[in-house]
């Protein structure tokens, strides 16, 4: 039996400990905001927070997440109003939208650790998140806007 804490809620799951966290979230827990894109940590669509760090849930076994705090896009904010979510809506970033949860989760760790990220900081933090629609420019601007919203409190 594995104990998980996902979005501040406790779960006890009887599951193969090698199962990637991604599929536990999606198939077992029913949190589908975390997306499958590549399965080999190359696209970032599955990014979640494990004890505040951005991890690719497609290659993170559920046993590694056991007893730790997992946060998914559904738990990033209570009312969907994290500065990044506000900024994403303000700049209407999304096209197809599929990769955006992963983009936001990667950006959230950056903003937590770096209140005033430079262009280079943003590039470095976001390099692992692919967007085929090509919304990178807006994502970049949205992260800057979110940093501003965050600084203003």
């Amino acid at each position: 039996m594995l104990k998980l804490n996902i979005n501040k809620k406790d779960y006890e799951l009887n599951i193969d400990p090698n199962t990637p966290l991604l599929w536990v979230l999606r198939d077992i827990v029913g949190l589908v905001g975390t997306k499958y894109g590549c399965g080999i940590a190359q696209c970032g669509a599955c990014t979640v927070h494990l004890n505040g760090e951005a991890v690719r849930s497609c290659v993170t076994t559920v046993s590694r997440a056991a007893g730790q705090k997992v946060v998914t896009i559904e738990g990033l904010s209570v009312n969907g109003d994290h500065p990044l979510q506000q900024a994403w809506l303000e700049l209407d970033v999304s096209q197809c939208g599929y990769c955006q949860a992963g983009q936001i989760m990667s950006a959230a760790v950056l903003l937590k650790e770096n209140k005033n990220p430079t262009d280079k900081d943003i590039d470095n933090a976001m390099e692992g998140n692919i967007c085929r629609c090509g919304t990178y420019l807006r994502i970049h601007k949205a992260i800057q806007l979110a940093a501003e919203i965050q600084r203003k409190g």
């Binding site: 589908v32 905001g33 896009i73 559904e74 990033l76 994403w88 809506l89 209407d92 999304s94």
Partner: peptide, 11 residues
Amino acid sequence: KNVEGSKIVTG
């Protein structure tokens, strides 16, 4: 604004 924008950013 995209009518599904907030659904997208909240997963």
